[in-house]
Amino acid sequence: MTTTIIKTTTRLLAPLILVFGSYIILHGHLTPGGGFQGGAVFASGLILLIVANVRDKVQKLFEKTPLTQLESLGALGFLGIGLLGLMSYTFLKNAIANSGFLFGGTTPQGINPGYLNTGGTLSYLNIFVGTKVLAGLTSIVLIFFLILRRERDEW
């Protein structure tokens, strides 16, 4: 599936999809979406990059990419942020909100334009879940791609 049309379209679309996925993950506490949805969008961009290239190129590119490690990092980060809440009150308590730390700004009450530096642990959890989802979905599609393309080469 590596015709010139698909390659050119991918070259135009993939950066936009990746940026849009990062936007959904980072703005999860302000706009619709969040870690799961943004991670799926980001993974679809990476999958487009995978299926629009030949097998050797993909294998060389993703050999050094720590997808499994990113997945584990997301899961452990989620647990770590949850334990951080244990420090103040209960598991997964929003300990960073209104504390002045990074992402710890105070949200004005009522209608406001939405500030990125708010959300407390919500932003961290969004980022960790997004990392986990994008690494997981991409690694599943990558392993199927490698298997199918190898069998086609053998035919």
Binding site: H29, L30, T107, N126
Partner: peptide
């Protein structure tokens, strides 16, 4: 908005 410090109630 005050407890979870997020505009998006669904995410909170």
């Amino acid at each position: 908005q005050e407890e979870a410090s997020a505009n998006n109630v669904v995410t909170s």
